[in-house]
Design a protein around this nucleic acid. Structure first.
Lengths: 344, 344
DNA sequence: TTGTAAGCGTTATCAT
DNA sequence: ATGATAACGCTTACAA
């Protein structure tokens, strides 16, 4: 044993601190390490670490503390996260996987709540767009080793999903009962006397998972209520023409649709404006109900509101519990609420 | 070989590789290291590294290669990114700082393009919501050490912004000429015969930086065209009532506004629906022009389109150039285009 | 074709 | 109150 008995400050050949001391220009910029700070302050690396991390139970003389802080700032020292993570064995990075960066009203609030709550506990939330055709997840772990992976809504992490290393996993999908949303939509329209329903299904693939469940709920409700199954039409939020086509489809027959469940408020708005452009009015010539209760639609659209704040807190609590190996909480509140705004 | 002749294994009862070999259940899961893979395959750690990283200029026998890959998979080895980054001295993480997770149509495309382009070069784009009241940037560097920090649109990184360590910085703000957008809006309305303009200013703080510039452009154009300065009213996208109030303000006087520049299409849509809810029509009773040309407004709204794809490619190219210490490119194309859709 | 061994910057543990 | 030292897991000359 005693091999590799490197006597600490042991002068490895010379290279690094020589460079650091002289600060040669022309060379690629060397990182300022805590050892540099220690050397410049005339203290040990340990002391620098104590000061920089405010280690509890360590008494450092005010003089030393201030000296170290000052030199660190002067030299422009920034701790190198990978080194720290290697030493600690954990990264404190929470990776939120999303399907798309165009994050909507509700999800952005969930993400924000997660961000805020975890920040209070020393974690940092970073979000990443998952696109396996661009980069397989397995390749991703080479670059990021999160301590928790959160699959955000609309992202269906496969059941055999293997988190990297000793990371934990949390799935957001499944918390909000999307089938119940569909049922609520259909029941509302039925309660208003509509018997022939349409369903506006989003063609955006990132919404497919959720949309299927909502539609399934509508189907169930139609069955229970003894009315016909909905006329399902795809609507592409990136192409308003599809909304016009949907309207044509619904209103174009003798047995016309008189009430439409839109996958969400954004689609409902597009449908509204397609109606308006042909002189028809949503809630008058065709009943319409959305989901999300986004502000932009709050003047007139009936919708199913999702309590984003409660959802966000629940996700954040679950994340913390998972990180700390505690039992995840149970969801107490009902996240859904019907908001009636028109009189169709 | 008595490697790791550590004197103080006193703490963890069993030295790590013993644990790894036996794979005891019940113990907190130990990380499976490349050394574990090496040991289990009966090769050296170097060989494992060569295989796992497909190191060029290294010829590994097919037998060994497959053996290593198989054992790695069996043991569930996932490389620990911080260790790799520490060794390489760089993290290959590109941190995109955003003001808010509710990312709009245009910005989400820019971000996506950045993501795709950088992925091709081995980087990973992670986005983070900046909120200094939640966590100061300096604290962030303790947890993430990116090799590039990208300040996304709407985020005004202070001039004295200090990137962490040897990281580089790229500011997205400043690429799109927002003042020119305002000028184009005002000129369009003027060309349609409108002389008394209004401006819908977003109350969302994350848009303030951009909004100021767009409004300034409108002011300039009004001045140049010899018409009065715009009647500026705040509109909160989270509160449609503010849109109604804006309408009241613009239409409520003798000297009524007859054309409105909205900060963006989202606000324009809200204004449209506020108009509709009192029986008025945008483009008829009040001219309206937005910005972004978002799909949801493509049926009838006149707007200033921003070429998100070209912008995104430019940002991606700039990011790559910055990372590789090359001179950033020049922006060739004109990103703005007036899209006329109504006839007001 | 494969192995050896030296670090990367940080922090926990022990010692002084 | 402060210092010395040994890891953390990985990559890469240099050896064999």
């Amino acid at each position: 044993m005693a091999e590799s008995a490197t006597s600490d400050e042991g002068r490895r050949a010379v290279p690094r601190h020589e460079l650091a001391e002289t600060g040669r220009s022309g060379r690629p910029p060397r990182r300022v390490t805590s050892a540099d700070v220690a050397r410049a302050s005339g203290v040990s690396r340990a002391t620098v670490s104590y000061v920089l991390n405010d280690v509890p139970g360590r008494s450092i003389s005010t003089a030393t503390r201030e000296l170290v802080l000052r030199t660190a700032k002067e030299l422009g020292h920034v701790p190198f996260a990978p080194a720290r993570s290697l030493r600690l064995g954990t990264s404190n990075i929470v990776l939120a996987l999303v399907r798309d960066y165009a994050i909507g009203f509700v999800s952005s609030r969930v993400l924000r709540q997660l961000d805020v709550s975890l920040a209070e506990h020393g974690y940092v939330v970073l979000s990443h767009r998952v696109d396996e055709s661009v980069r397989p997840l397995d390749d991703l772990w080479r670059l990021v080793s999160p301590s928790l992976v959160v699959g955000m809504g609309g992202l269906n992490l496969p059941d055999d999903f293997v988190p990297p290393g000793d990371a934990k996993v949390l799935r957001v999908h499944g918390i909000v009962p999307h089938e119940e949303i569909g049922r609520m939509q259909a029941r509302y329209l039925h309660s208003r006397g509509h018997r022939r329903l349409g369903y506006a299904f989003p063609s955006n693939p990132s919404l497919e998972l959720i949309a299927r469940e909502r539609l399934e709920g509508v189907r169930q409700a139609c069955h229970e209520l003894g009315i016909g199954q909905p006329v399902v039409v795809d609507v592409d939020t990136d192409d308003p023409e599809t909304a016009s086509a949907a309207i044509d489809r619904w209103l174009g027959t003798d047995d016309a649709v008189d009430g439409v469940c839109a996958h969400n408020d954004e689609i409902a708005i597009i449908l509204s404006s397609a109606l308006a452009s042909r002189g028809l009015r949503a809630g008058h010539d065709l009943a319409l109900i959305g989901v999300d209760d986004i502000p932009a639609a709050r003047l007139s659209l009936t919708s199913i509101a999702i309590d984003a704040d409660a959802w966000g807190r629940f996700v954040a609590d679950s994340a913390l519990a998972t990180l700390e190996n505690r039992e995840p909480p149970h969801l107490e509140r009902d996240l859904l609420r019907l908001v009636v705004r028109d009189t169709a």
